[in-house]
């Protein structure tokens, strides 16, 4: 009896917390299906009386949300791919080779983890401006490609991959690149996925850097476009809500399929978007 009551209390708490998590999202979703008039009703309707997809259609037809979405997809996938590749290559060098200043360089890499992005943001902007990269994809992508966290995480993983596998490949006539791409990378899928997901979250949700680099509508990513839409149409909550849903749904879908790595990536880094 006592145990049953405890169980009921625990489940009640769990459900209440779940509601606190989901109600704000559902409210936004509900608002995104309302007409402008309906958003002004008080008390607010929890379920829209006449649900409509008009807000979504408006965002894609009268606003460049299709473009924002495309930009976000392009910038995010390029950033994730290149970040993982570059960090992986460097991690392999740190894990497998000995060279002069190796420890100094690794120490320098790690030290950058302490430096907030804001410290480098201003010179970065000036460099990117000098390259004529403002409002370009390379301007959005390339300056964000260095990840000390990625090098650190992957180096740890590569170091625990036994060298015997490398050796036997060398005997078969393989070079270092074959060893890297055909042996070390496939053997460290978990670490790669962990870092990849972390990098994905960071790139997809990133706001400050795209805000600095993209001043033209057609080069904005979703977070910047969304914040911009809100700035101009402060009262159009139905439109803003639809925009928020468009930015949340893709990452929610990825989360649904890769929960494990999301949690791992966040837990192992202690950093977040």
């Amino acid at each position: 009896m006592n145990i049953n009551i405890r169980k009921v209390v625990v489940y009640l708490l769990l459900v209440m917390l779940a509601l606190t998590t989901i109600v704000p999202m559902l409210w936004t979703f509900s608002t995104s299906l309302k007409s402008k008039q309906a958003t002004l009703a008080f008390p607010p309707d929890i379920v829209p009386k006449e649900p409509t997809l008009n807000n979504y259609i408006t965002l894609f037809n009268s606003y460049p949300f299709g473009r924002y979405l495309f930009n976000s997809f392009l910038v995010t996938s390029a950033t994730v791919f290149l970040q993982v590749l570059i960090a992986g290559l460097a991690a392999f060098a740190f894990a497998r080779f000995d060279f002069r200043f190796k420890n100094v360089l690794f120490g320098l890499y790690l030290a950058t983890l302490m430096i907030p992005f804001q410290v480098t943001a201003i010179p970065l902007y000036l460099i990117v401006r000098n390259f004529n990269w403002i409002n370009t994809y390379q301007g959005l992508i390339v300056p964000r490609l260095f990840s000390a966290f990625g090098v650190f995480l992957l180096r740890q993983a590569f170091m625990s991959t036994p060298r015997e596998f490398d050796e036997s490949a060398f005997i078969d006539g393989a070079g270092y690149f074959t060893v890297f791409f055909k042996i070390v990378l496939p053997m460290n899928k978990t670490a790669l996925a962990t870092f990849g997901i972390f990098s994905f979250m960071d790139a997809w949700n990133s706001y400050l850097w795209p805000l600095i680099v993209s001043t033209e509508q057609n080069m904005m990513t979703l977070p910047v476009g969304l914040a911009n839409l809100h700035g101009r149409w402060i009262t159009q909550w139905n439109l803003v809500s639809a925009g928020a849903m468009i930015s949340i749904i893709p990452i929610l879908l990825v989360f649904l399929f890769a929960q494990k790595w999301f949690v791992q990536g966040v837990a192992s880094s202690g950093l977040k978007g």
């Binding site: 779940a18 704000p24 706001y207 809100h230 989360f255 966040v266 978007g273």
Partner: peptide, 30 residues
């Protein structure tokens, strides 16, 4: 439940800020 509570963590700050700006709206927020 554990996964569920993690949903806000993966959402973007901009989206979360807008969601809460709506909730906190004094006139027609929830």
């Amino acid at each position: 439940f554990r996964s569920f509570y993690f949903i806000p963590v993966v959402s973007s700050w901009v989206a979360v800020s807008l969601i809460w700006k709506g909730i906190l709206n004094p006139a027609y927020g929830y």
